[in-house]
Nucleic acid binder design. Structure first.
Lengths: 232, 232
DNA sequence: GGGCACATTTGACCTAGCGCAAAAAGCCGA
DNA sequence: TCGGCTTTTTGCGCTAGGTCAAATGTGCCC
């Protein structure tokens, strides 16, 4: 249910990296041009291959970026949460979206039509600078990951995926970080079968690094996972 | 041996995607600010982790972008040839270079200091637009590759790597495309041991898809490789 | 031509992780 | 409380590809 974005920018907006260095007036006019959308878990923002028509900024909730490979398997690339920009790669490229964006947890987003955002960037050079930086960071992340997937054991990959998950969509609790995901989700993120995922998690449970329940887990000892993901 | 870039832009410069849409005058001033460098095969442009101080454009030759993973293995990300921009991700990020750039075949490059290029982009908005597009394309490529590495067999990965190699650094000949690389190079590009690479190439030789010699190969039937890389 | 340094090939063996099947454990609605 | 459903666990066999060792080229320098 799209509607115009509220005109009064909430204070946290000015801290969003996309808006860094933007004056209050500029920020207001950029936000005025945006449209606010609320989506429920399970709904889809856009599909892989759709024409890249809009640029989104996540205000709240969690959005999953996934890709369907040629062989039909689904690969989850990344979860996006508050402050993350979705569609930047495709929009600045005038290419179809390379991924599918679906809502994991009820989300609110604001978005701009592609030509409109180009205008905004022309009017506000800082915006373009920030966009360039954002895309650069995204690339850097993917480059780093390309390096990581190689030669890593299944356990290392799972450790990294869980840590990423905890960072991007985890909820801090007294004795750890809680993340909601199925074994299948983890499998899609790592390219490992969920059988192997289950075996690894069972092992971690035995070693008391995590507690794993149905559709969720509690990361008790992130540091140990970091060691696992890194060293042997 | 750096020296100022020649002031008269060679005609092909205006076709470089980074300079698309730039007027002749603008192009001249952008080139005037650049420095030309020639490097021999084996020399290094910059190392992974170096401060990202310059943005390079390949004029001729081939430059290899590689990454050393945490476990010490080298991973070749991409070969860059004429028209490709090197360092864009890091420079626009003010992050250290995430990769090492070394010269594969004697190369000539032009480069700009980072702050200077920002000024040029401010003066010439088309340049910034192009930069944004370039970074976007690079990202898109890496995202696509992240999806590809998953679930692919060794043969599929090698097929893709060889095709990329042929496209990025191949020399067209009467009966195929010649590419210069060692089995080890291919291993570094795919994350596969060179034993397996050798086995796969031997098989391809038997099936007459390629001819493979010491430090080089001739791709006879790119179409067959494309089928291999894609289908089962 | 002979020796040397690599690059490549081939073989033998081994293991991480996949595929499949079947059992167990939660969750929910009636 | 009982099905019926989904998610997770576990066992077992199998295979792609890694590891190691040893043989075979191949080019180059003296």
């Amino acid at each position: 249910m799209p509607r115009p974005a509220r005109l009064t920018p909430p204070p946290e907006m000015s801290e969003t990296s996309l808006f860094q260095g933007l004056g209050a007036t500029a920020l207001k006019s950029v936000l005025a041009a945006a449209v606010e959308t609320s989506l429920r878990a399970g709904e889809t923002l856009f599909h892989q291959g759709d024409e890249a028509s809009r640029l989104y900024l996540v205000v709240s909730g969690v959005v999953k970026l996934s890709q369907v490979a040629a062989n039909g398997t689904q690969h989850v690339l990344r979860l996006m949460s508050a402050g993350d920009v979705i569609g930047c790669v495709a929009v600045f490229n005038r290419f179809p979206y390379p991924v599918t964006a679906s809502v994991e947890e009820d989300a609110t987003l604001i978005s701009w039509a592609e030509p409109q955002f180009w205008h905004l960037m022309e009017d506000h050079p800082e915006l373009m600078t920030n966009a360039l930086r954002t895309v650069g960071q995204r690339t850097q992340e993917f480059v780093a990951r390309l390096g990581e997937v190689n030669g890593a054991t299944a356990e290392q990959k799972v450790a990294r995926a869980v840590l990423r998950l905890a960072r991007q969509a985890g909820i801090k609790e007294a004795d750890g970080v809680r993340v909601g995901m199925t074994r299948q989700d983890l499998a899609d993120m790592t390219g490992i079968t969920y059988f192997t995922i289950s075996r690894i998690l069972s092992d971690w449970k035995r070693r008391e690094l995590v507690e794993a329940g149905r559709r969720e887990m509690l990361v008790r000892n992130p540091h140990a996972l970091l060691l696992l993901s890194d060293g042997s």
